[in-house]
Amino acid sequence: MSLTTLTLGADGRVRHRVPPDRLSNDLAGWIARDLVAPGLLRPNAFEQAFVSVVLSTAWRPVVAWESFYRNTLTALAAGGDPGGTNAGMAPVQQRATELAVGPDVVELGCCFGFLALQLAAAGHRVTAVDIAPGTVRLLAAMAPLLGLPVHAVAGDATAAPLADRCADTVLAVHLLEHLPAGVDVLVLAEMLRLARRRVVVAVPYEDVPDVAWGHVRTFDAAALHRLGASTGHRYRVADHHGGWLVIDR
């Protein structure tokens, strides 16, 4: 078994040889490739397998997670290893950072918060929102260790616990593909409620939803144009490692 090969034991536990210095968000791609795609692991068990591998790399959870975060941020800054998850994320997050305007930024559906941390490193005051309380607690614990201030908040992207017009830019990067059809309109309305200046949406372009990543629907440029036009605001759609919808107020 190579360092980046994962197997599932007879006891249902993931077997790996991932050393702490290789631990990063590339792990997500390895699990999808080695366990979910061949049918060895159900997509709904993805998160549990992911966490179990991370925690197995160090004697204390905080040490394991800090290595995971630091290695991922370093890999994203360098562009990631070819074909890896970080390599796929890097240009998307770089573009999102370039599109953020103003000092105050909100990210909806932040997951681990790598984009939020990059935005903080770029000098923005960042509030990161995710529906999973555990993920929010993890980000809140890691951000101070990394020296990157991020305000992490648990909340639904359709009803964030934040004030009207609280941010210059509001982002939802690779969130909408995880939500059922029709919810995208609700999320966009919430983003417009929160944004003073700009809304940024990014989605992957797929022929079919990638269930290994929890995707439930697909988007194309036409769908983004319909979404933008429904708001009545000035908008533009662009392609860059997927599709982008940018709305300026």
Score class of each variant (00 low, 15 high):
1 M>H: 07
5 T>D: 12
6 L>F: 00
7 T>V: 02
9 G>T: 02
11 D>R: 05
11 D>Q: 00
12 G>K: 05
16 H>A: 11
20 P>G: 02
24 S>G: 12
25 N>K: 05
25 N>R: 06
27 L>Q: 02
27 L>W: 05
31 I>W: 07
32 A>V: 03
35 L>S: 02
38 P>R: 13
39 G>I: 12
41 L>F: 11
44 N>R: 13
48 Q>V: 13
51 V>K: 09
54 V>C: 11
62 V>N: 10
64 A>M: 10
71 N>E: 10
76 L>A: 09
80 G>V: 14
89 M>I: 12
90 A>E: 12
96 A>L: 09
99 L>S: 02
102 G>C: 00
104 D>P: 03
109 G>M: 13
115 L>F: 07
116 A>K: 00
117 L>D: 12
120 A>G: 09
126 V>R: 15
130 D>Y: 11
132 A>R: 15
136 V>T: 08
136 V>L: 13
140 A>Q: 08
141 A>Y: 01
147 G>L: 06
148 L>M: 10
149 P>D: 10
156 D>R: 14
159 A>Y: 04
175 L>A: 07
175 L>S: 04
177 E>T: 01
184 D>E: 15
184 D>M: 01
187 V>D: 02
192 L>T: 08
194 L>A: 12
197 R>S: 10
198 R>D: 07
208 V>W: 06
208 V>I: 05
211 V>M: 01
215 H>V: 09
217 R>E: 00
221 A>F: 01
225 H>G: 07
226 R>E: 14
228 G>A: 05
230 S>H: 04
242 G>L: 09
242 G>M: 06
245 L>W: 01
248 D>E: 15
